[in-house]
Design a protein around this nucleic acid. Structure first.
Length: 626
DNA sequence: GCAAGGTC
């Protein structure tokens, strides 16, 4: 009996192999796989590298840029630029599956995992049936349990997965093309895109942009009492919206030189260590502390993972593995680093347990360091590594103790407040010192004390518009709105920037006029693509497909018909839309400009086909090559 | 060339 186990990624193949027994590592065309003997059977554990197949348009008889298009098929992903490496994985699976009696699918337990596994089985191994290992963590016990009690493939889930890809393709490709063809209709060109995630993401950036544009600042007044020793007391009303009222209070008390302490409230608070990193939190912290973009942080974390220094980065878990032996080993390793030794020794000696965060991920634990770098890291890798290391260690450490003091003060019959805060014990903050806590010492007020008031100040202030999103805050917002996945959010944001819909300006994301125009156009013609409800709606439909309540062909057909109607209308108005987009784009002086002379780029035709050239030809002979 | 999703 010979068995083949197909995993989602190489690292998991290794883990599963090792859980099943003593492995022999082999490789074919540079792709590793693992052989194990178990109960007299030979087991080969190999893997995919995520999706091995991708959707491609059936271009027969189609012109470039034509829409609508709905005829797509699955093709090997190595046919796509930049993904050539997929080929050797497909070839390896093909070779290994030739003489096996039984196949186990051991991809991640989710919609994409089911599809990845089925595609490998169907297109590479030429089978429809296999056993299915489902595990929610990669511990030895869990892997063995999944191996001994295999499930079967959930074809409903496979159908839902296929539908997810196709729906995203239908909407994304067609509406993107409609935008581009609208430009082309007025003889201009520019890469444009939108989709189920990009659309709503840009839409809520636009929403914030409009809030800022339409913001009317309001005046308000604050009254402060300056006390001895540079202490500020603030009138308990905080904001006076009425100038007359503020002045009345101010005039009444401005000459008063004394105040009386009514109440002193001291509260001690314990602050638990910040939980271990999920990807989103790591991205936010790396941006906040080092100004690394979420995409770069993700790439660095991926490299640290590949080098074996950190755990799997694409996780939404905030919990370390629940395995003391494993954690102990890791801690001992981190303890080899001089600056961490003292902490590690105490954690081990006292058997300290890590705190957990709220978020969980069935497939992976929180991001943690797993080893000490042997080779020197780049400066940025160094930063991320130690950020993760300190976070990991801090999770085991003691609570921080803080004291917050609130003082109520009476000045001329008005209530004022003074607040102070200080750290009593740093605890975990000693290790993970990247968060700042305000230290605001105030005198030791006691109830009944009479305090000298040096001056009463009346200040006019203005309300401020809401802040724009940053690279970091938008990732969190996407997460909150359940748009995109932990793996794709950073890329989505970069894409909006690349398209010229959004600019990063002094650290803040500002929507360009083009970005605004794209959303306005989409809202007018196909509002569903800018509504985040579309994701929710799609998920509902996919669940029905999975449960077998609806046929995938039906929901695909429905989407197709709907899009055909919408796109027909868009096509009829291409020139109008194109003109609108162009005029808004010009306001941005965006990169439709010729980089040589500043003229605009226009579509030109030669006997070799169409190309983009400078409008100033023949004065300027610039041609854009892509 | 356009999406979104997996992974190196």
């Amino acid at each position: 009996m010979k068995k083949l186990i197909i995993c989602e990624k190489p690292k998991v193949a290794k883990k599963i192999g090792e859980a099943l027994g003593k492995v022999k590592k082999r490789s074919y065309r540079g792709v590793p796989y693992y052989e194990v003997e178990r109960d007299g059977e030979k087991i080969v554990v190999a893997s995919a590298v995520g999706h091995l197949f991708t959707l491609e348009e059936d271009k027969r008889g189609k012109k470039f840029g034509e829409y609508p298009v709905f005829h797509v098929k699955w093709v090997p992903a190595w046919m796509v630029k930049g993904r050539e490496y997929v080929k050797k994985y497909i070839e390896t699976l093909k070779k290994l599956s030739r003489d096996v009696d039984e196949i186990y699918i051991a991809t991640d337990w989710d919609i994409e995992g089911e599809l990845i596994g089925f595609h490998a089985l169907y297109y590479i191994c030429g089978r429809r049936n296999a056993k299915r290992m489902r595990f929610s963590s990669l511990t030895r016990e869990e892997i063995l349990r999944a191996y001994k009690n295999p499930d079967s493939i959930d074809y409903g889930l496979v159908g839902a997965g296929e539908s997810r890809h196709k729906l995203d393709w239908y909407y994304g490709i067609n509406v993107s093309r409609a935008l581009m063809q609208s430009l082309k209709a007025v003889n201009r060109w520019r890469t444009m895109s939108t989709g189920r995630v990009q659309g709503p993401a840009l839409a809520f950036l636009v929403e914030r942009e409009l809030e800022i544009r339409n913001f009317k600042s309001r005046k308000y007044w604050v009254i402060e009492g300056l006390l001895e020793g540079d202490v500020k007391a603030i009138h308990s009303r905080e904001k006076f919206w009425d100038e007359g009222e503020a002045k009345e209070v101010y005039n009444r008390i401005k000459g008063i030189g004394e105040g009386r302490v009514l109440r002193v409230l001291r509260r001690e608070r314990s602050i638990r260590p910040l939980p271990p990193f999920d990807l989103g939190t790591l991205q936010r912290e790396a941006y906040r502390i080092y100004k690394l973009s979420p995409k770069e942080t993700q790439e660095i974390a991926q490299r640290l993972y590949e080098k074996g220094y950190c755990s799997y980065p694409r996780t939404s878990s905030q919990r370390l593995p629940d395995n003391w032996k494993y954690l102990g080993n890791i801690l001992r390793k981190i303890g080899e680093i001089e600056e961490y030794r003292g902490y590690v020794e105490r954690i081990l000696r006292e058997g300290r347990r890590p705190v957990k965060g709220k978020k969980e991920d069935p497939a992976h634990p929180a991001i943690h360091v797993v080893d000490v770098p042997e080779e020197p890291l780049t400066p940025k890798e160094e930063k991320i590594y130690h950020l993760i290391a300190r976070r990991t260690l801090g999770v085991f450490w003691e609570d921080m103790r803080r004291e917050y003091i609130e003082v109520d003060l009476e000045i001329g019959g008005e209530l004022f407040k003074v607040s102070g805060a200080r750290t009593l014990k740093r605890g975990w903050h000693e290790i993970y010192y990247f968060t700042e806590f305000e230290e605001k010492e105030i005198p030791n007020f006691r109830r009944g004390d009479v305090v000298r008031v040096k001056e009463i100040v009346l200040e006019e202030r203005k309300t401020k518009p809401p802040k724009r999103y940053t690279m970091a805050s938008i990732i969190k917002e996407l997460e909150r709105r359940r748009l995109g996945t932990k793996s794709t959010r950073a890329e989505i944001v970069e894409k909006l920037i690349k398209r010229g819909y959004v600019l990063e300006e002094r650290g803040y994301l500002r929507v360009t006029n083009l970005g605004m125009a794209v959303i306005e156009t989409l809202k007018r013609y196909c509002p569903e693509i800018v509504e985040e409800g579309m994701t929710r709606d799609m998920e509902d439909k996919l669940e029905k497909v999975q449960r077998g309540e609806v046929k995938k062909e039906d929901i695909l057909k429905e989407a197709e018909e709907r899009l055909r109607r919408i796109l027909l209308e868009v096509k009829r108005r291409e020139m109008e839309i194109g003109r609108e987009l162009i005029s808004r784009m010009e306001e941005d002086k965006a990169s439709t400009r010729c980089p040589i002379c500043g003229g605009s780029l226009v579509v030109r035709r030669s006997r070799y086909g169409e190309f983009l050239g400078c409008s100033q030809y023949p004065r300027c002979r610039y041609i854009q090559r892509e």
